[in-house]
Design a protein around this nucleic acid. Sequence first.
DNA 1: ATATGGTGTAATATTAAAAACTACAGGAGG
DNA 2: CCTCCTGTAGTTTTTAATATTACACCATAT
Lengths: 141, 141
Amino acid sequence: MHISTKCSIAIHCLIFISEYGETQKVTSELLSLSTGSNPVTIRNIVSELKKEGILSVRFGTGGTTLSCPLEEITLYRICSAIEPDFLGKLIGIHTMPSPLCPVGKNIHSVLDVSYEKIRKDLQGSLQNISMKDIVDKYHDL
Amino acid sequence: MHISTKCSIAIHCLIFISEYGETQKVTSELLSLSTGSNPVTIRNIVSELKKEGILSVRFGTGGTTLSCPLEEITLYRICSAIEPDFLGKLIGIHTMPSPLCPVGKNIHSVLDVSYEKIRKDLQGSLQNISMKDIVDKYHDL
DNA sequence: ATATGGTGTAATATTAAAAACTACAGGAGG
DNA sequence: CCTCCTGTAGTTTTTAATATTACACCATAT
């Protein structure tokens, strides 16, 4: 119900692949060492990114390369790939308001309107940042 | 590490208090029944809102009233009151990147820039919605 | 052909965070 | 001084995130 560390791990991996994917065999083991998280976690994340068409994985022999220009990989795309309906899960709503109370009965419909606006805003915000921006920033350091 | 259900419970309570605070004794027990959550949870949330100057609680005898015009109660204020540094906790970052890897060494500074932008955007988005909007919506239903 | 070093994925365990519950001290007002 | 409330500490329960273990399957080099 939040933007999890999986997102930052995904970005980390994408920078890594963008830098070394063409010249080295980037395996889940290697990404695991660089990110400090588990190889299985990496494989799951990379697998979701693959389904999204962001990168491709050489099966069997290993190695990962980008299959999409950096400009087209927005944070929104990354988050959606990793966590389906992450926007819907971002804001929690208490589940058991009393249907006997006028406020309780209507709270969900009232919140829906405002929460949807917040979700749309966040979506725009995430669509505004691409891996191009991030890799550029990485080079500028 | 997300916008928790406490926020929606707080909004629920504020609508309730705005509607009935002047005419009835709104106790944590009552709010607990209406929201479907625990009286202690309610008291904690209400207590944070009180510290923020959003409402006042009659100690001893019970009862809660708003102490601030609805327009001035933005969702941002509510969230901050309830969850200090909620913006900082919104986006998770993996904690153990390898300092031996050029990417791992710099990932945090790279992410900081973009994540700060997202946080600012969200802050603005939450500041744009006030309890006035929400109560109006409630009346329109 | 087969050993090697990868991926994909399921099942389970561990950890951490959110929420609920219990318990009780202390205030206000009849 | 009794009753109904708040404030808050301490504990337990529940749920979500992450890590771990295990293994089937694939591609290539030898």
